[in-house]
């Protein structure tokens, strides 16, 4: 690969607008810096990092170079992505926590049940806010379609349609199969079913990701008024709060389960477990519980990042 082509390839790390403005001179500059030698690794690393940083600046993810509207839109979309992750984490929790109340003594079910109910309520409120957010953007979406914007978003819609068909088929197939299996076979007794379920879980994750991608691509192309963006910003803060509420109530539920039925979290035989409040509960939960916690943790970090970006944009506007 020639130095010029190599420099052009590295340039792709920068956003399109930046490439259009500085691309040619930047390539010439990198050629000057390298002399007759191939582009050094350290130089390549520096360009990649600078390109990513520039993307973050332009998208409004960091710094104050972009407009407040861009910062608010980006913050809101990060919260949306966090919520999509939370939906996956929540679904994983619902599956892992199936029949959890049966593992508890009947006299002490109430606190854990209340915490779990709080998870469900937070999830419902958060989802409702996301739906309202989508509804608020509908007029702008119609305007986008009327002005020939379909070509900009067509591809992601086709990808989503493909995933929805795949999801519908796999849901139907798995349900039909599950009806012919016993409870023991469905819960780990049949290895083939376990594999099929894992693939199904992957299809669900990819479908949620495809739907989120549609929302992000469409929202990026929409011409939203200041008023609509302000509303979306407030809704994003609400969704961010619901994410935190979900995590807080999950922790409460976890603590209750750890106290009353630690074997449930560890996925071991009923009644066989470490002492309640043992530190090993924190480090040796079952794999599904570990995955659930991981997804929820990442979602929370993203939600906090997005919500803080939105909040900062409101503060700077004052």
């Amino acid at each position: 690969m020639t130095r010029k082509r190599e420099a052009r390839t590295l340039l792709r790390w920068y956003p399109r607008t930046w490439r259009e403005r500085y691309g040619d001179e930047f390539v010439a500059f990198v050629e000057d810096c390298s002399g007759e030698e191939p582009i050094a690794r350290s130089l390549q690393r520096s360009i990649v990092l600078a390109g990513l940083r520039e993307r973050c600046y332009v998208s409004g993810l960091i710094g104050s170079r972009s407009t407040l509207e861009t910062q608010r839109r980006t913050g809101s979309l990060i919260v949306l992505v966090a919520w999509a992750m939370m939906v996956i984490g929540g679904a994983s929790l619902a599956k892992s926590a199936e029949h959890f109340s049966n593992a508890l003594p009947s006299v002490s079910r109430s606190p854990a049940q209340s915490a779990y109910d709080l998870v469900v309520v937070s999830a419902l409120v958060g989802s409702a806010l996301v739906v309202v957010g989508a509804g608020v953007a509908v007029p702008a979406f119609v305007r986008l379609l009327r002005t020939g914007g379909w070509t900009q978003v067509r591809r992601v819609f086709f990808d989503l349609a493909l995933m929805v068909v795949l999801l519908a088929l796999s849901t139907f197939g798995l349900s039909a199969w599950a009806h012919h299996l016993t409870s023991t076979q469905r819960n780990g007794g049949n290895l083939l079913y376990v594999v099929a379920f894992l693939i199904y879980a992957l299809v669900v994750v990819l479908s949620v990701a495809a739907a989120t991608r549609v929302a992000v691509v469409v929202a990026t192309n929409l011409d939203l008024s200041t008023k609509v963006l302000r509303t979306e910003g407030y809704l994003a803060l609400g969704v961010g709060s619901m994410t935190l509420a979900m995590v807080a109530s999950t922790v409460l539920w976890w603590v209750q389960m750890a106290h009353q039925a630690p074997w449930f979290l560890q996925g071991t035989v009923v009644g066989v477990s470490v002492t309640p409040w043992s530190s090993s509960l924190l480090v040796t939960p079952s794999t599904p519980m570990l995955i659930t916690s991981g997804i929820m943790l990442v979602a929370t970090v993203c939600a906090l990042l997005g919500a803080s970006r939105v909040a900062v944009s409101f503060r700077r506007a004052k």
Binding site: Y22, F29, L43, I47, A50, R53, E54
Partner: peptide
């Protein structure tokens, strides 16, 4: 200055 830093500064100053 690395290329990224230099052009980052040029972008900022021009803006």
């Amino acid at each position: 200055l690395s290329p990224g830093t230099l052009y980052g500064a040029i972008t900022r100053l021009e803006e």
